[in-house]
Design a protein around this nucleic acid. Sequence first.
DNA 1: ATTACTAAACGACATGTGTCGATTAAAAGA
DNA 2: TCTTTTAATCGACACATGTCGTTTAGTAAT
Lengths: 192, 192
Amino acid sequence: MAKLLQPEAETTDPRILRSRRMLMDALARLLMKKEFEDVSVQEIADEATLNRATFYLHYADKNALLQAMTESRFRDLIERRAITFTGCKGALRAIALGVCDYLVESTGCPTQLSRMALEGSIIPIVEDMFKEGLAHHGMAADADSSLPATTAAWAVFGAARRWFQSPNRVPAEEMAARIETMVSPILFGASQ
Amino acid sequence: MAKLLQPEAETTDPRILRSRRMLMDALARLLMKKEFEDVSVQEIADEATLNRATFYLHYADKNALLQAMTESRFRDLIERRAITFTGCKGALRAIALGVCDYLVESTGCPTQLSRMALEGSIIPIVEDMFKEGLAHHGMAADADSSLPATTAAWAVFGAARRWFQSPNRVPAEEMAARIETMVSPILFGASQ
DNA sequence: ATTACTAAACGACATGTGTCGATTAAAAGA
DNA sequence: TCTTTTAATCGACACATGTCGTTTAGTAAT
């Protein structure tokens, strides 16, 4: 495993940003035609009109690209909706709805999801939002407050994933409400 | 992807059982020396004193073997403790403790866990236990009762995983109790 | 014991993976 | 403008992956 270029987005070099954007876009385009497992690094590089070696300057393998792409696009969706977890229940529902909608609009076929490791990119983001919200709400952001954040994030993702893969889906809004009901005791305590 | 032999354990042919057992044991031995990512199918086959092609008769790739091994060993642990989810809170705590202990005793180094997809094998088992328990408890095992089971399973695994990766772990028993407190409203409703 | 069945072994193949060193070219500062 | 820096390209390499057809040998039933 050779070292990559700038670890994350912490760069302003237009060449780096351009290459990463093109790789993500290329993968997104390929995923509309075939399954992730059947996409090779060579194909991604070709689709992005980049050399295969350039791919490895940025990502360790195609899974790392998938992770980065998922993270970037999920962040976009959250930002587009201007969701901030203020620590209220409504925000929890909005986040759950965001996860549901993201799965629908990003993953063509539900069967694909099972083989893709999206949890690694989505859950940490949701977790951070919960942590921020709980900190804003007065609770200190120590290890005690971050355990519920982690647990709630996994619960939300697991529920949304299950919903997305179920044959007859109820509307996303209804699912988000049910997730809120189930998950809010984790964050706010069983009393509320 | 060629088709494999008997889909799962539904075989009595001693040759098949022997090969699978040897492959799982070989992988377990190799994981004590190096990371999963650095283990090749050839190494696994050599360690198991089997031909590499024989590996592919049983598993699609090394991830599939890891999944099968994890599932088998986690089931063993549950069975050894004779845990049955009767629908009571105590059973939930026992299951949470089982997941915590499994992570400790099966995964050498916590950093390995992040790159391994164990959730795919552990969560479904926990989920099934929850479903069974809820059904026993009178609730019908329809889609409505299985959503909490899924959600709770993800929550338990996420919390246990976080605990396992944290630097200064509290005792597993204490963690199991905290998981029980957080997760039980998902299964039993926020009222109880 | 003979037979039918089929898992395991073996060698070989095309393709994909990850890395390397050397070269070219684009970005940014003097 | 010139210079420095470093990303991108290119060809090549050793190795891993997944599959195939054939042969060997273990299993189970007659």
